[in-house]
Design a protein around this nucleic acid. Structure first.
Length: 253
DNA sequence: AATTTTTCCAACCGCGCGCTT
DNA sequence: CAAGCGCGCGGTTGGAAAAAT
């Protein structure tokens, strides 16, 4: 599915990455970080250019990176953010923990764009897959796969379901918020998301709330690891904050 | 079964921005 | 201030896999 490996006129390797190269890059970045991508390949013993290494790391090798299997709420977020910001893939990806700009861009061009074009003329809203035992009703609970998104983004609450059988999504799993959490989230219904969708949906909006969640609920480094699968960039920082200000970490919001 | 066409994703490319000298 | 450098972003492409003929 990728360009076969080859060497350009400067002797720099291009095309598909081998397992050995992946391991070499991963090991190097995990050990030494990536303060200088241009120097990194030389120091890591790779005959790639820095850009190629950076791309490979961001899109494929970095921890917690998610590939394929987009959830319903991720699709909704991409579509709405694209409506708001256009082709700002890095901005959109910033709202989807574990997704890279490249991945989001590809997903848009290969799936969502066509899906929207097909829907044009009818309702623009994507069809929602019902969850639990609510099938057959017109109003469904929308249960996010990613619990943290449920706190930070408009992924919980009630939505209007257009169809109960036509979704082709195969990765939709449910997360049981419980009534209390849903009530606390107080995100309302999808019909009422005017405010949410018209306000700038920048990563800070998610992180601000999710960061508080992590700060208050991560009891140890292992917990931070769990939460950081969604927000690992921030979690690392928050863990440091937690170490410095342990009293804040035990406070409720 | 063989061939052609389409899909889709990893990777490349060029541009622009910000920082440093 | 200008030049050089490094990085990140968004557009585009190559080609394997899947689907269609």
């Amino acid at each position: 599915m990728t360009r076969g490996p080859y060497y350009d006129k400067n002797g720099t390797k291009r095309g598909a990455w081998s397992k050995e190269e992946d391991e070499r890059l991963r090991a190097y970045v995990e050990r030494y970080g990536h303060s200088n991508w241009r120097q990194l390949p030389k120091q890591a013993g790779l005959s790639r250019c820095g850009k190629s290494c950076r791309l490979r790391w961001l899109n494929y090798l970095r921890p917690h990176v998610k590939r394929g299997n987009y959830t319903r709420e991720e699709d909704e977020i991409i579509i709405k953010l694209h409506e708001l910001h256009g082709n700002k893939w890095s901005l959109i990806a910033g709202s989807l923990p574990g997704r890279s700009d490249n991945e989001v861009k590809n997903h848009w061009h290969s799936h969502l764009k066509k899906q929207l074009e097909n829907n044009r003329g009818g309702k623009s809203e994507l069809k929602m897959k019902p969850s639990g035992t609510c099938g057959g009703e017109t109003t469904k609970h929308f249960e996010p796969e990613n619990p943290l998104l449920g706190f930070g983004a408009a992924s919980s609450g009630n939505i209007i379901s257009e169809s109960s059988s036509s979704s082709s999504y195969n990765s939709f799993s449910t997360f049981d918020f419980g009534e209390e959490n849903v009530a606390n989230a107080a995100w309302g219904t999808f019909e009422e998301f005017g405010d949410f969708w018209t306000q700038p949906f920048v990563p800070e909006n998610i992180y601000e709330q999710d960061s508080y969640y992590i700060l208050n609920h991560a009891a140890n480094e292992a917990d931070v690891d769990v939460y950081s699968s969604y927000l690992f960039d921030n979690a690392e920082f928050l863990y440091q904050v937690m170490q410095e200000f342990p009293e804040d970490a035990t406070k409720d919001i």
